[in-house]
Nucleic acid binder design. Structure first.
Lengths: 124, 124
DNA sequence: TTCGTTTATCGTCGAATAACGATAATAAAA
DNA sequence: TTTTATTATCGTTATTCGACGATAAACGAA
């Protein structure tokens, strides 16, 4: 197996989608800040209904971003770094390319008129 | 101004949301792979209707992820690294925390039963 | 001015999302 | 078995998203 099997666009989008809600970002930050596992404390911190938070946790779990370990009546949630690595790789690639090619404004790739040397668009 | 003004959950979620679609990931990868700016070539590569691709580009532009420079009849698109930095920072923080605290499975923070020392949940 | 090329916007439709309250499920404790 | 505490699921509703075709806008070229 090659170590460089690029994740699909769908996989990367799915990871991003799991992060694409303020409540879920907040949950991730909560899990980062705590060293002990927290169950329903998340619900109180987030300030949404318990069922809503549970749904956000379900989405994060489905994407593999968090894992839930059942403790007595509650659940210990934890972050799973591995699930985020593909997205990190893509962003790192953007960063590397941008700092290599780009100007001081962080723009990457083009922006010199003569680099726009497309004929006129090939018609299909 | 402090160099550490954390972006809000909303800001981070907005960046992630811009990346949360396969077509938009594909566009980003396209812009990464090309050294010259490409206009409607994106439309052909993505394989969706022109109006749909234009909408995805609009979303990426609105999030600041890409910039569009108008060339004669077409538009030169480029990536904007800066817009992605906040999300990169969060992911990097997860990575740092996880590799410091976590076990070999990439899980972060809890998972030892005795670390679950919440009393029983404070009732509100 | 008119034409041709490229991109943006509009209107529509079906599908997905987010939020909630109510309720079910789980399992230790009484 | 019954109770208690926590989390998950269900059903509903309003909103947003994704895709498309049609059309408008921009602007150099003829």
């Amino acid at each position: 197996m090659s170590p460089e099997n690029d994740p699909s666009n769908e996989q990367l989008a799915a990871i991003a989608k799991a992060l694409a809600h303020p409540a879920r970002i907040q949950i991730i930050r909560l899990l980062l800040s705590k060293t002990s596992c927290i169950g329903g404390e998340i619900t109180h911190e987030v300030g949404l209904a318990q069922s809503t938070v549970s749904e956000h946790l379900r989405i994060l779990k489905a994407a593999g971003v968090v894992a839930g370990e059942i403790e007595h009546p509650r659940v210990c949630y934890s972050l799973n770094l591995n699930s985020l690595l593909p997205l990190m790789s893509l962003l790192q690639l953007v960063a590397d390319t941008a700092t290599t090619v780009a100007g001081s404004d962080g723009l990457c790739c083009p922006l010199t008129p003569q680099s726009c040397d497309l004929p006129s668009r090939d018609r299909e």
